[in-house]
Amino acid sequence: MGTRTVNLTVNGQAVTREVEPRLLLVHFIREDLSLTGTHIGCDTTSCGACTIIMDGKAVKSCTIFAVQAEGRSIETIEDVAKDGLHPLQEGFWEKHGLQCGFCTPGMIMCSKAFLQENDQPTEAEIRWAISGNLCRCTGYVKIVEAIQYAAEKMHEKANQPTQVQEQEVVA
């Protein structure tokens, strides 16, 4: 029962490591790659603190073996801000969508994948989408507001002609 080589893309970077087959993906991310923004809050796939995005879908990395990520692309909280904060990060900050901050990376990763599928969600849809992520501090109301903030902002941006397009129109 030796180790195996696993090759995957993590936050856009190719990664190759030797791992025990039983190594949980969350431990791989936290210990082997030192990306400690992904957290662990339970041992029964209940809390969602370990949520990452794998091939575009939000999944709980405590219930996947690292070897299963072979050839896949995963994204963690550390890579969400690009040229400034992501609208979700802004939303969580603006709306006070976090207190202790422990569930926050999982909440943001879950919401990010969700908004990619549904960019104009209702409150009920948001509550449904985050129902696999436990928060003990906020009572969820401000998390919902944070996601609504991001959704509006992303929707606005998606429907706004970009600078370049405007110039083309003028030209």
């Binding site: 796939t45 999944v59 996947i64 879950c110 989408a129 696999g132």
Partner: peptide, 9 residues
């Protein structure tokens, strides 16, 4: 079944 994230796997 379970929750949305579990259902993705």
């Amino acid at each position: 079944i379970a929750d949305p994230l579990v259902r993705n796997m």
